[in-house]
Simulated assay, not measured.
Amino acid sequence: MFVVSVVAGGPVLVGAADAVIPRALWITLFVVFIAAVLVAGGSGRPRWARHGAFAAAVVAAWVVVVAAEHWNLLPILLVIVAAMSVHVVPPWAGFVVVGLNTVVLAVSAAWRGLDAPETALGIGFYVLIQAATLLSSLATMREQKMRRELAEAHVGLQAASVLLSESARTAERLRISRELHDLMGHQLTVLTLELEAARHRDGERAREHVERADRVARDLLGDVRATVGRLRTESSDLTKALRQVVRDLPGLEVSIEVAPEVRAGEEQVAALVRAVQEIVTNTIRHAGARELWIEVASDGDAVRLTAVDDGRGAADPVLGNGLRGLAERFEALGGEVSVDGRRGFRVTAEVPAS
């Protein structure tokens, strides 16, 4: 928009065309228009500042167009404010701006005494361009919104799939451990008791064989119990789980690195999966980022997740419902969550290792 605006105002800026007001004042108003457009188009600024800048851009565009001795391409400035209106004000307000722009052109033409048929044709042409750019901008915004919502739904479904798979694997491990304990554990315990009784019978050689069998049976029972314990606490493949959450994610490049020494139990894995889901969703919705880096590492007796994006960040970040819920989830496990928006947006989440 900056280049188009400069091209449209170029003849007056370089002195090739005259203005009906002092040229220095006209150039000042033109600079005000450019600055107001830049401020209004900045998504990271407060709403009141963007609305005020947009109003200033509209008024400055009117004055710049009316104050030029010849329109040339200056009505393009009106097209610019119409196009950017959908990013600042509701759609109905954008159509109001288009109507007011048309009135300004008509009044300016009448004041100049321009040929009515030719002027009407020119004004109609600019009305059509304004309406077309406004509708095009609306369609683009709606498409972007739908793509964001689709990406958020995709992340949510992937996270739910990971947690469902983890739950199914946990249930299967518990089922196997119960069967091992109920069947083999019981049988080996009976065998140990029988051998213990046989050990007290007569016969030295029989006693030696019985004692060796007793040791083997006890060792086997210990192995079974150890296996049952491992089945109950076996760690999931955390790297695979987290990468599945962000797999085939449109519009955002996500890099996930998990240190090989990280060990996480079922509750920790669920918390980390939910953390990645919330962080990715938050990045898509608010950050305007292209890349997101997530790292999971061990930090003493804790597992630390660090996520940082290349988006616009926030000088004084305020936690929304999602991040507050995430913090509560980690605090319930004895951990904590912190954020920093000074360079991109950084989220650090820690939870005690399993």
Rank of each mutant, 00 (worst) to 15 (best):
F2C: 09
V7D: 02
P11H: 05
L13H: 06
V14P: 01
G15T: 10
W26Q: 07
F33A: 05
F33G: 03
I34M: 12
A36G: 09
V37W: 00
V37G: 02
V39H: 05
G41A: 10
R45F: 15
A57E: 01
V58Y: 04
A61R: 05
A61K: 02
W62A: 03
E69A: 14
H70M: 11
N72G: 14
I80Y: 01
V81G: 02
A83W: 05
A83P: 03
M84T: 10
P90D: 08
W92S: 12
F95A: 13
V98N: 04
G99C: 13
V103K: 07
L105K: 04
W111Y: 12
P117Y: 13
E118I: 12
L121R: 14
V127L: 15
I129M: 13
A131D: 04
T133W: 12
L134M: 09
T140D: 13
E143D: 07
E143S: 13
Q144C: 08
Q144R: 15
R148Q: 12
A159C: 05
E166T: 08
R169W: 07
T170E: 02
A171I: 06
I176M: 10
G185Q: 04
H186P: 00
L191N: 06
T192M: 14
R199K: 14
D202P: 07
A206N: 09
A213W: 11
A217W: 05
A217G: 03
R225I: 07
G229N: 09
R230L: 11
T233Q: 04
T233Y: 03
L238W: 05
L238T: 02
A241D: 10
L249K: 02
L249T: 07
P250K: 09
V254P: 00
P260H: 11
P260C: 07
E261S: 10
Q268E: 10
A271Q: 04
L272F: 05
R274L: 09
A275R: 01
Q277S: 09
E278Y: 03
V280D: 00
T281L: 00
I284M: 02
R285Y: 06
A287S: 15
R290A: 15
S298R: 15
G300W: 08
A302P: 04
R304K: 11
A307C: 04
G311R: 01
A314W: 09
L323I: 15
L323H: 02
L323P: 03
R329S: 08
A332Y: 08
E336C: 06
E336N: 11
V337T: 03
V339C: 00
G341H: 06
E350A: 06
S354W: 14
